[in-house]
């Protein structure tokens, strides 16, 4: 029974893969030329880099929902009932070499995050990459024994986790006054996008670090 299922899944998956591979070999030219339209409108978007323009302006609404998805994952983890682990937990040894290294590296990582955020307007970079670097700094501090795991985030921390999404929503609501959801007024687009990205970087750093630091905690309780 079990082997039959395995064979059936493998056969179906393989057949599907071959059919799909064969079907994409010969496709007509796409009817809609979106890159061309994008290039034509790029000047209006407030940023120079096309991927950032799509993420924060043309399809900024996707990004708004996506921040909610990320916050939601953290929320789902926080909402899990706290279960005290039976597994033996090995306490961190505060390794002085690691601690010194972390103390040197973390300020540099903050600087890099700031640069990546600012660079996103005209070259690859932006809020997500910068937030990931910030989160990396948080994880490094935790591993070096300099930052404790999060037991339950207090109100300040929760506000910090949510501020990126809240600023994004606040901009969307404020812009509703002039008519349309997330339609940046000409001339303001660049500044508004930078403001959204800055608050997103901060919150994304906290959220991504939180995904690690909250899970790190349930082991520490043992």
């Amino acid at each position: 029974m079990k082997t039959l299922l395995n064979v059936a899944v493998l056969f179906l998956a393989g057949a599907f893969g071959l059919a799909l591979g064969w079907a994409i070999l010969d496709l007509p030219v796409a009817a809609v030329n979106l890159p061309e339209q994008l290039t034509a409108q790029l000047d209006m978007s407030g940023v120079v880099h096309p991927v950032t323009a799509v993420l924060l302006n043309f399809r900024g609404y996707d990004t708004l929902l996506e921040i909610a998805v990320l916050l939601l994952a953290l929320l789902g983890i926080l909402a899990l009932p706290r279960h005290v682990s039976d597994h033996q937990h090995r306490p961190f040894t505060a390794n002085p070499v690691l601690q010194t290294l972390a103390r040197v590296l973390v300020p540099l990582m903050l600087l890099v995050a700031g640069y990546i955020l600012w660079a996103g307007a005209h070259r690859p970079g932006g809020a997500f990459q910068a937030g990931a670097v910030l989160a990396g700094a948080g994880v490094l501090l935790h591993l070096a024994g300099l930052l404790p795991a999060w037991v339950t985030p207090g109100r300040t921390l929760r506000a910090g986790l949510a501020v990126g999404l809240l600023v994004f929503i606040a901009v969307a609501v404020a812009l509703m006054a002039q008519g349309t959801l997330l339609q940046y007024p000409p001339g303001w687009a660049g500044a508004l996008i930078l403001m959204i990205e800055a608050s997103l970087t901060f919150s994304l750093g906290l959220i991504l670090a939180g995904l690690y630091l909250i899970l790190a905690d349930s082991r520490a309780q043992a």
Binding site: Q41, F58, R59, G60
Partner: peptide, 13 residues
């Protein structure tokens, strides 16, 4: 129909 961001499909959502 509501064009988010005022762009309109297919460029916008």
């Amino acid at each position: 129909v509501y064009a988010v961001g005022g762009w309109g499909a297919p460029l916008g959502i």
